[in-house]
Amino acid sequence: TTEYTFTDDEEARRAIEELKKRGLTFRYEKHGTTWRVRVD
Rank of each mutant, 00 (worst) to 15 (best):
T1S: 11
T1Y: 15
T2L: 13
T2R: 12
T2Y: 14
T2V: 13
E3M: 11
E3G: 03
E3Y: 14
E3A: 04
Y4C: 15
Y4D: 01
T5E: 09
T5S: 05
T5C: 13
T5L: 12
F6R: 00
T7M: 08
T7W: 08
T7V: 06
T7D: 11
T7K: 06
T7S: 07
D8E: 05
D9G: 07
D9M: 10
E10P: 03
E10N: 11
E10Y: 09
E10F: 10
E10M: 09
E11I: 07
E11K: 07
E11S: 13
A12T: 02
A12L: 14
A12N: 01
A12H: 02
R13P: 01
R13Y: 12
R14W: 07
R14Y: 07
R14M: 10
R14F: 07
R14H: 09
A15N: 04
A15Y: 15
A15Q: 05
A15V: 14
A15E: 04
I16P: 00
I16Y: 02
I16D: 00
I16V: 04
I16G: 02
I16K: 00
E17Y: 08
E17G: 07
E17N: 10
E17W: 10
E18G: 07
E18K: 07
E18P: 00
E18Y: 13
E18M: 10
L19W: 09
L19R: 00
L19P: 00
L19E: 00
K20C: 15
K20Q: 10
K20M: 12
K20D: 04
K21E: 07
K21A: 11
K21I: 07
K21Y: 05
K21N: 07
R22A: 12
R22E: 06
G23Y: 03
G23P: 00
G23R: 04
L24K: 06
L24T: 04
L24A: 10
T25K: 12
T25F: 13
T25Y: 12
F26H: 03
F26K: 00
F26L: 07
R27L: 09
R27S: 15
R27Q: 13
R27G: 06
R27A: 12
Y28V: 15
Y28W: 12
Y28R: 01
Y28G: 02
E29A: 06
E29Y: 13
E29S: 10
K30L: 06
K30F: 05
K30S: 03
H31R: 09
H31Y: 10
G32V: 01
G32Q: 03
G32R: 02
T33S: 12
T33D: 15
T33R: 08
T34D: 05
T34R: 07
T34E: 13
T34K: 07
T34V: 14
T34I: 14
W35V: 09
W35C: 12
W35R: 02
W35H: 10
R36E: 07
R36Y: 15
R36K: 13
R36N: 06
V37D: 02
V37L: 07
V37R: 00
V37S: 00
V37A: 00
V37Q: 00
V37I: 14
R38T: 15
R38Y: 15
R38D: 05
R38W: 15
V39A: 02
V39I: 10
V39Y: 03
V39N: 00
D40Q: 13
D40K: 09
D40F: 15
D40W: 15
